[in-house]
């Protein structure tokens, strides 16, 4: 099975080629709300997660909320 290398919050991860953002989100068991992500500096709206395919060397920032003033 062919894989691609991506990074999530600075850590490298391998994922099956042609996986979508939705596939990744389900693999990571993320909650339904309160998270968001950007790929290579662009925010990917939740409504497009199923159609956006991850490419080799994509850099993903995955965020949620934390305590803060």
């Amino acid at each position: 099975m062919e894989v691609v290398k991506i990074s999530i919050n600075g850590a490298t991860m391998q994922i099956i080629k042609d996986s979508s953002v939705a596939d990744l989100v389900s693999q990571l068991e993320l909650p339904n709300a309160g998270v968001a992500l950007a790929i290579n500096g662009s925010v990917i709206p939740k409504s497009t997660w199923a159609s956006v395919i991850l490419a080799d060397k994509d850099r993903i920032e995955l965020i949620s909320i934390a305590q803060g003033g």
């Binding site: 919050n9 993320l30 909650p31 709300a33 309160g34 998270v35 920032e61 995955l62 965020i63 949620s64 909320i65 934390a66 305590q67 803060g68 003033g69």
Partner: peptide, 21 residues
Amino acid sequence: VTVAIRRYHPQSSNSLYKILE
């Protein structure tokens, strides 16, 4: 209430989100 935006952390992120919800 204000919150910061930080890299996702499975335990703390979910707990704070649920409380505020």
